[in-house]
Each structure stands twice: as C-alpha cells, then as structure tokens.
Design a protein around this nucleic acid. Structure first.
Lengths: 166, 166
DNA sequence: CGACAGTATCTGCGCTTGCAGATACTGTCA
DNA sequence: TGACAGTATCTGCAAGCGCAGATACTGTCG
C-alpha cells in the first residue's frame, strides 16, 4: 500500500513530490519501529507500547498520570489502555494509586523497578534508533526533516486541520 | 514513547538533531496513517491493511501473486496473511486460484469488483494523503525528505545494514 | 517405488485491540 | 435528600495478530 503507483508514474499531477516524501516517511518509520520493537522485546523484556507508557510516566513526575491523561499522551494506544496498564502493573513496573478526593479515578505511577527498567530501556532504545536511523543521514538532512515535520510533533491533533485547504 | 526526553534536554550528545527528525517522522506517519485508515474504513468499507494487499495485487498484473510474494511485499503484515486474505476473499475482492503444476500453492488475484473498489479507494486515498500531508509542506521540503528517506523505500530490508557504522 | 528434506500454506491458540455498554463516583439543582 | 447529567475507568465480546506446529505437496536420491 502506500505505493499506489509503480515506477511508471501516470497518476501524478503536476507536482508529485509529496507522494515520494510520504512514502519515505512511511517506510522509514515502519522499518525503524520494527527494528526497535524487536530489540526492546529481546533486551528489555517489553514492547514499545510499554515503553510509550513508561516514558510518559517518567516525564510526568512523582504524581504520575490519570488514565485519561495517559491515553491522550500515548502515541500508540487508542483504546485498551486499561488492560495495557494491567499488564504493566502485573509486571510491577507501574502501580495504580487512589486519587485523594476522587474515588472514581486512579493515578498511575512508576515503581522504583519501573523507573530503573525504563532508564535502561531508554538508553538502549536511543542507541538503536541512532544506529537504525540517526547514522544513516547527514546532520543537514536531519535538520531539514526535523524542521519540516516539527508541526506533527507539536500539534495536539493535526487531524483537525486536515480539512483546511489553506 | 519516542519522546524519551522532555523539553529540558539533558540526554542529547553533541548532535541531537537526529532525534528530532526521528520524532517528526514517527509522529507524522502515525497521525497521517490514523487519518487515512479511518477515512478508508468509512468511505471504502475496508482498512489500510486490505488496501496494502489490493495495491500489491493491482501492481502485479493479471497473474496475481503467491502468498509468499504477497507477504514479502506487504508493508503492514508480518504474519497472519492467510486470514487477512481469507477476509478479503470473503468480501469477494480477491480470489484464490490454483497454480498450474504446483498443487501446494495458490495465486491470489483481484476480482473485477476488487479492482474497481481498489481504484476508488486509491483515488480517495491519494486525496486524503495529499490533504493531510502533501499540502502541509512546501515542495522543497518534500523534495528534501524524499531524497533523504529514499533508501528506506528502496532497500529490501535496511535492518540488515543497521549495524553498519558507516 | 520409498524415504526424506524442502517448500507453500494453513490451523490452533493465546495475546492484544477496539468498541459498546456497564459501573462507580461527583457535582448541581430542586 | 433525591434525581440526574457528567466524568473516570472497567468489562464483555468480537476481531485481529503472531508464532509454533500441522498439513499437503514437490523434487531428489538410492
């Protein structure tokens, strides 16, 4: 998919470049993610989805996050966060605690072990990404990509503006 | 995840740019894919995984593809191709046919309906990607990204060379 | 032909996801 | 206080995914 067109381009309108760039973004992320996920499972014992959650919690400070906040922040999880946290909790990397003054809610916090395992995973993950992605481009290329794609990282939800023709 | 570091960078080594560019690639693909998948389900009645398979078959010509070839080409499917094709076949978009001279194998080919539904989906998909991704960058930016990320699209499996420090 | 390694695809099964509807609690208003 | 809309999270269930082990066929060698 996402290679809707063969070498013998015919579909393209006047400027077809955006499609080649999209294809690059798509393939690069798919391949690098696959490498990183396999590596993390092998060496850290958990997949990227866990790492996603752990990193949000590590960034959040000692109070942790509510389930809703976590769901908004996590990149890889649309639903099913309850059970994802269940699994991570069963592995003793996070812990659910009551929220004072609101008996509906829970806050999810890293355990000491969770923080430690996360740090180790982070260090390794950084190296893996650097090797599989970082070192394959020049600094100028990275700069150009970072500048161009920055809005997607920054925007809360670019989907909202996708309709906007301007 | 994949935002291992907060605004208060401390982790980064001398040149941290590669990480910002990775983050951009990751977020852009995740967000755009989500938009495209939802749109396709709503308007074409099937998800991107189906589109992935259909597009490979459309590119393959009238003889279709063997399951193995399909598995190698498809971007989104690691295993479970048998059942994915089962579902698409149940929807009458593809069809399994015997391979003359090898009773183990099957070739998967598009049905007339499949080809038609694929064309419609392709047209719409192109527009969606253009709106959600293409129009948000300048032509020069797309050119730079396409040139930089081209190897990932081109290489069979960049994972193999990930070790290569050069 | 019979044994056997190799190939192509499928099946069984457990884990993960996604979504709709429960459940439990809060805050407001009469 | 009792009703009720709103919020936070969980549960049930069906669908999808991934992997290990079947199953069915092929080609080779003796």
């Amino acid at each position: 998919m996402l290679s809707p067109v063969q070498p013998n381009d015919e579909f393209p309108g006047p400027d077809w470049t955006w499609f080649e760039s999209w294809r690059g973004v798509l393939f690069a992320s798919a391949r690098v993610l696959r490498i990183a996920d396999l590596d993390m499972i092998e060496h850290d014992g958990f997949p990227l989805t866990w790492f996603d959650v752990l990193s949000r919690l590590a960034d959040a400070g000692p109070a942790g996050l509510r389930m809703q906040e976590l769901e908004e922040l996590a990149l890889f999880t649309r639903g099913g966060l309850t059970r994802l946290v269940d699994r991570i909790e069963a592995a003793r990397l996070v812990q659910r605690e009551p929220v004072p003054g609101d008996r509906r809610g829970v806050r999810v916090v890293l355990t000491a072990d969770g923080r430690q395992r996360y740090s180790a995973a982070l260090a390794r993950h950084g190296e893996v990404i650097e090797r599989a992605f970082g070192q394959r481009l020049t600094s100028a290329q990275h700069r150009a990509i970072a500048d161009a794609l920055w809005p997607w990282w920054h925007d809360a939800d670019p989907a909202d503006t996708a309709q906007d023709p301007g």
